[in-house]
């Protein structure tokens, strides 16, 4: 009785997994198929617009990830170790930008940092500086939507570090800073790396918040996803351009994910 039921269950599970895998693979197959059919992909990749978008995306996402690490690590550590009022609320709020559509993040950024925004207006009045239509705005948009992925991962990394280890370090006379650097961070390393990858990848793919808050100008705020949208609208690159750009993003994502996976494995081993 039990064996046929198990077999049926196994068959169902396999079938569902196959359908799921197919659903994920087909869009990529479509991209590759179209790129081959168009035959222009390679020449399009060498156009200035694509190069600028690629460079901009790379550096903006990298800067956003570094900022997420610098600004997010202390927060993640406090959330994991600290006992302060409102900790549970802060912990829940971290997820907000993950759950919210990025367009909402873009509108929210405008209401805060726009020229009529909460702080944007006084800042412009004092210094003449405006955030909109600058690469700064691109990084800010990416930071807002992507950093929570890092903080979330870092926090669970710190959670998993045995507090006993840290206590032992203290009793041996190590300072808190030294303990954090020599015990906590190495222990949480794979989680920190994974968080950085997630953050960087999410930042690379950011579209909605960037378009709304930073605008779309080649070489200044036009990141890869914005170039895809512009190409789709029929800019000089056209639909083949959208396909080519998507393909680069896909390859870039694969390379980065693979590289970070290797780094995380090595980091965990050392």
């Amino acid at each position: 009785m039990r064996v046929p039921a198990d077999r049926a269950a196994l068959a169902t599970v396999t079938l569902l997994a196959a359908v799921f895998a197919l659903f994920f693979l087909l869009p990529f197959a479509g991209l590759i198929d179209r790129a081959i059919a168009d035959g222009e992909t390679w020449s399009l990749l060498r156009t200035r617009q694509v190069r600028e978008a690629l460079v901009l995306s790379f550096w903006a996402a990298t800067l956003a990830s570094v900022l997420a690490g610098v600004l997010g690590t202390p927060g993640a550590y406090l959330l994991a170790r600290g006992h302060f009022p409102g900790r549970a609320i802060a912990d829940a709020l971290i997820d907000l930008p993950i759950v919210l559509p990025p367009t909402v993040a873009g509108v929210a950024l405008l209401t805060a940092f726009g020229r009529r925004g909460l702080v944007g207006e006084p800042i412009e009045a004092w210094t003449g500086f405006t955030f909109g239509f600058r690469t700064t705005a691109v990084v800010m948009a990416q930071l807002l939507v992507a950093a929570p992925f890092y903080v979330r991962a870092a926090k669970s990394g710190f959670d998993a570090v045995d507090p006993q280890l840290e206590r032992v370090a203290y009793t041996l006379g190590a300072s808190r800073v030294r303990t954090f650097a020599r015990i906590t961070v190495p222990q949480a390393w794979p989680a920190l790396v994974a968080g950085t990858v997630l953050c960087w990848s999410r930042a690379m793919g950011e579209l909605g918040a960037t378009l709304i808050f930073a605008g779309n100008l080649e070489g200044r705020t036009q990141t890869m996803p914005l170039a895809v949208i512009s190409a789709f609208e029929g800019s000089s690159l056209g639909l083949p351009g959208a396909v080519a750009l998507s393909l680069i993003l896909l390859v870039a994502a694969l390379v980065v994910l693979a590289a970070f996976r290797l780094a995380a494995r090595n980091g965990a081993r050392s």
């Binding site: 726009g114 239509f133 605008g215 100008l217 949208i229 512009s230």
Partner: peptide, 18 residues
């Protein structure tokens, strides 16, 4: 400063004072 995806987005950027 920006090439917007459609004319209504242009309108919004001006409306917002951006």
């Amino acid at each position: 400063r920006s090439e917007e995806p459609n004319v209504r987005a242009v309108l919004t950027k001006v409306q917002l004072g951006e």
